[in-house]
Design a protein around this nucleic acid. Structure first.
Length: 938
DNA sequence: ATGTAAAACCAG
DNA sequence: ACGCTGGTTTTACATA
């Protein structure tokens, strides 16, 4: 080591590092079975510090004990900290072993936090003219940055200097304590001033300079909640400042000169690394190592753990990484034509037909295609070559819209193009434009030869990124199109598209068509290379006009009945509200969970409250139900009130508002939202109409068939479990389905070893919960909570389940492996479901990714199957001579409207088509029902 | 005034 | 952190 006059002291925040590494790294164990992931991360980091010899002096600083001067002045300080997790506890002493093995001094001092020691060493080294690097990402240490002191993020290996501190706190390091005093810190229980967050705090400090100056200025501020809070909580802020300010004058347990970087004792180090199984560290250090054991990672850990992140698995290149050809990138996104005459439009139509393809886009005065009017349309025939046809622009006195074709005239000119099945029409989200044309007078069903870039992208990248045009353009073309907001303005400056100047509208709208066309050129080849062509051509693309028809049809509601329900709910809520206020002892907003929490747990002093992330009391239904079960009156009443409030606001009132003058509600199905291939429904969401409670089912009764007709419901029975039996190839489950047995009872019989005959309800319920749990990627914790049994018991159920059905465990592991290796899993029909979080460092997020990977093929496979049936059904109904219409899809259920006299025959046909939509190793079973309303049919 | 996050709860 | 996939409403708060 070189001697140097100006020491450079590296201080490693050992305590901070342990927690961060523990949560960031996958679980792993040493050869003798002790969890060591945090130790491994620490060892790697320390090795790196020594290898890159960033400093002349080095020490690792630890916390010592829980009691410090901070808990003296504020007993709640860090009081809510839970005990460290079980897997972390044995690692604390191992990390101290690591410092010894590396011959690095470790320093701690009773009564002081590591942060204070670090601050004191930093001050001391600065005083003697040296420099200091603090290896930590703890924001509390950022106040020390500057003047020879900098920080280094130990995981990301990125420096934290003045710019980073300023970005984080909005002020320079010397003002950080002032900001922290105002904003507080919930993780350490530093109170701060309520209602003041990072933004407000830094704004105040930048204005007044110090906490004291802010507090002094508070009484003169304009009257506001903020002013009152500053005055009321001034003392809390002063205490907070004392809590966050680090002590610079702690006596140094080791003089700085003793911290000079020491020689490694390679044998000691190699021995220790060997005992921990850290062979990779050994070889990286260039220390010769004896042959032997290596780190054994537990079953669920990725094999690519590394704090450098160097060995991340690479997902298969997404379509985004394909290189668009040069012509696509070269043509400018400008120079578009405004089309104002029949002749000009005719020329564009001819050009499109000559090219054999074009992109089409419509502009409207609204986002609901069933109520929006066409304001203009655009065509693109080649990259960079596009036009806009204004139709309903209004213009102003200074800037008249100029000559425009009528909607009628334009439609007649473009009809031959749209109905020409030798010219491909490319849309981004075709369903929307189809319905816009339909409303304008051009039957959507007559539009042929359609491609949809949104669906082309979704079919190969669900879950990887959004499928909006702007996002796809930025991703694949490297070009960000003009935003809609910049054209129409936002907030109260927003104008309808019809009032946008035609020249500006042309730049925007023609570009959209141009971008759509270019996206097609990029996505078309990748559909094949990503093996998504069949999925797109046979499922997604043909489904689009089917959904358009369903949205257009809508479903009839019983307006009078919904009105009565609303009244009924309102009346009962009013009574309950009075009772609730009486029981609470004062009036409050029953709809406010926060106020309710204060009443229950602060004022009434009830026990059993849990605080959420933001520190607010949790008052969800499980909490209230627990309190009700203890005999408390108020929580039970609130539960009942909430149920009615939900039903009224979300369903009865909203449906009455949304229904058309013909008393039908028209949902919108989103085709490219979910990560699994499911549809979603919104405005209104008709996929979550209540059914599970008595009150809720009254709302379903208000969805009706018009006079002379019936509703028919057809739903797949246990489709996801059938897929599981098929995909995981579980003989017992397959047999049960083949025999038409009660699948949950059969599971109970297999797993608990009791006869199928006379199965008791409780045991069956447990088996059912496990079956569903498997589909969702179960944990013992989750199952225990679901069933209200101890976690240990739940664990033993799961073990018994896996012992009986080892194929399911294999399936789960296969999906985890696939997701890790490729970044996605596949449904049985080849749909890719990306799982972007699968290789994350945080254990929680990674496990979430693993559950997604297990669930997606089942949920997505079911979505594929019902979509296949939906694509076939309209034609099948028509071919059979039925006038019946498909109205809704609810994931495993389809709802139809049919003439009274054909209802039974329609139900039989529907069942047939749905059951034959896929050929699995287990039968698909569909149950149908017929009724005057949805509740009856289901 | 307008936008957004968090909490709560509806469905499969 | 705590089983998967969604959407809507409300409150509470930050920002224009």
């Amino acid at each position: 080591m070189t001697q140097s006059d100006t020491p450079h002291l590296v201080l490693v925040d050992g305590s901070g590092f342990i927690f961060r590494a523990f949560h960031a790294l996958p679980p792993m164990t040493s050869p003798d079975g002790v969890p060591v992931n945090a130790v491994y991360g620490f060892t790697n980091m320390l090795a790196r510090m020594l290898r890159e010899h960033v400093g002349t002096h080095l020490a690792v600083i630890f916390d010592a004990g829980r009691h410090t001067f901070r808990s003296e002045i504020y007993p709640q300080y860090k009081a809510h900290r839970p005990e460290p997790p079980e897997d972390l506890r044995p690692q604390f002493s191992l990390i101290r072993d690591a410092t010894r093995a590396f011959n690095v001094p470790s320093i701690e001092l009773q009564g002081w936090e590591a942060d204070d020691l670090i601050a004191s060493y930093a001050c001391a080294v600065r005083k003697i003219g040296g420099t200091c690097t603090i290896v930590s990402s703890d924001k509390d240490l950022m106040q020390l940055v500057g003047d020879g002191v900098c920080m280094l993020d130990p995981m990301k290996q990125t420096p934290i200097g003045l710019p980073e501190v300023e970005k984080k706190f909005g002020v320079l390091p010397e003002k950080v304590v002032e900001v922290q005093a105002l904003m507080g810190d919930s993780t350490d229980n530093v109170p701060g001033v309520p209602g003041i967050g990072p933004k407000t705090a830094s704004a105040l400090i930048n204005e007044f300079g110090t906490l004291e100056a802010v507090l002094a200025a508070a009484p003169d501020m304009k009257k506001s909640k903020r002013r009152d809070m500053l005055i009321e909580h001034a003392e809390a802020a002063r205490i907070s400042r004392k809590l966050v300010e680090l002590a610079c004058d702690v006596p140094l347990p080791e003089p700085i000169e003793d911290l000079r970087v020491r020689e490694l004792d390679k044998l000691t180090l190699a021995d220790w690394l060997e005992s921990m199984g850290f062979r990779s560290v050994l070889s990286r250090l260039g220390v010769s190592h004896p042959a032997g054991a290596h780190a054994h990672r537990v079953a669920h850990a990725t094999a690519h753990a590394s704090i450098n992140g160097a060995a991340q698995t690479a997902a298969t290149p997404a379509p985004s990484e394909s290189t668009p050809n040069a012509a696509l990138l070269a043509a400018p996104y400008s120079g578009y034509e405004t089309v104002r005459t029949a002749e000009a439009l005719q020329k564009w139509v001819s050009a499109a037909q000559e090219a054999g393809l074009c992109a089409v886009d419509t502009e409207t005065d609204g986002l609901d295609p069933l109520n929006a009017n066409m304001v203009g349309l655009s065509l693109a025939t080649a990259p960079g070559k596009a036009c806009y046809v204004p139709l309903r622009h209004e213009g102003t006195l200074e800037e008249p819209a100029g000559e425009q074709l009528s909607v009628q005239a334009a439609l007649e000119l473009i009809r031959p193009l749209l109905t020409d099945d030798t010219t491909l029409k490319i849309f981004q989200n075709a369903k929307f434009d189809l319905l816009v044309f339909d409303r304008a007078g051009l039957d959507y069903a007559s539009i042929t030869a359609v491609d949809d870039t949104m669906l082309m992208s979704y079919a190969q990248s669900a879950g990887l990124h959004g499928q909006g045009m702007d996002e796809l353009s930025t991703l694949h073309l490297g070009h960000t199109p003009i935003s809609y907001d910049s054209v129409t303005g936002t907030g109260r400056n927003r104008v309808p598209f019809a009032q946008v100047a035609v020249a500006r509208a042309t730049e925007y709208a023609a570009e959209d068509a141009d971008v759509t066309l270019r996206l097609w050129h990029v996505l078309r080849p990748t559909l094949r290379t990503n093996q998504a062509l069949a999925l797109y051509e046979q499922i997604e693309r043909p489904l689009s006009p089917v959904l358009a028809g369903m949205e257009k049809a809508g479903i009839a509601i019983d307006r009078a009945e919904l009105g009565r329900l609303s009244e009924d709910f309102a009346g009962r809520m009013a009574v309950m509200e009075k009772e609730i206020h009486a029981a609470a002892g004062r009036e409050f907003n029953v709809a406010s969970p926060r106020q309710l929490g204060e009443i229950l747990f602060d004022e009434m002093g009830l026990k059993g409250g849990k605080r959420g992330k933001a520190g607010a009391w949790g008052t969800d239904s499980s909490v209230l139900q627990d309190l009700a079960d203890q005999g408390h009156d108020l929580p039970e009443k609130v539960l009942a009130w909430r149920q009615l409030a939900k039903l009224k606001s979300t369903y009865t009132d909203a449906l009455l508002r949304q229904a058309s003058t013909e008393d039908r509600v028209h949902t919108s199905f989103q085709m490219a939202i979910t990560t699994t291939g499911r549809l979603s429904s919104n405005e209104p969401n008709l996929q979550n109409i209540p059914i599970r409670t008595e009150e809720g089912s009254r709302i379903r009764q208000a969805f009706i068939a018009p006079k002379g007709k019936k509703l028919i419901s057809a739903d797949y029975s246990q489709i996801e479990l059938r897929l599981l039996a098929d995909v995981a190839n579980i003989p017992a489950l397959r047999e049960a389905f083949a025999l038409g047995q009660d699948i949950h009872a059969r599971t109970a019989s297999e797993v608990f070893g009791i006869p199928l005959e006379g199965m008791d309800a409780l045991t069956r319920r447990r088996a059912k919960a496990i079956n569903f749990g498997i589909i969702y990627g179960i944990s013992a914790f989750g199952l225990s909570r679901q069933l209200g049994i101890p976690a240990g018991e739940a664990r033993s159920y799961i073990d018994a389940y896996f012992a009986r059905y080892p194929g399911i465990r294999d399936y789960m592991e296969r999906m985890r492996e696939q997701a890790r290796a490729q970044g996605y899993v596949l449904t049985p029909f080849g749909r890719r479901c990306y799982v972007p979080t699968i290789n994350e460092k945080s254990a929680a997020r990674r496990q979430y990714g693993e559950r997604q990977a297990i669930n997606a093929p089942l949920q997505g496979g079911a979505a594929d199957i019902i979509k296949r049936a939906m694509v076939r059904l309209p034609q099948a109904l028509k071919d059979a001579g039925f006038s019946a219409r498909m109205l809704l899809q609810v994931h495993d259920e389809l709802l139809f409207e049919a003439e009274d006299h054909e209802a039974k025959a329609v139900a039989a046909l529907v069942r047939n088509i749905m059951e034959s939509a896929a050929e699995l190793s287990v039968p698909l079973v569909v149950e149908t029902g017929i009724g005057h309303n949805w509740a009856e049919a289901h």
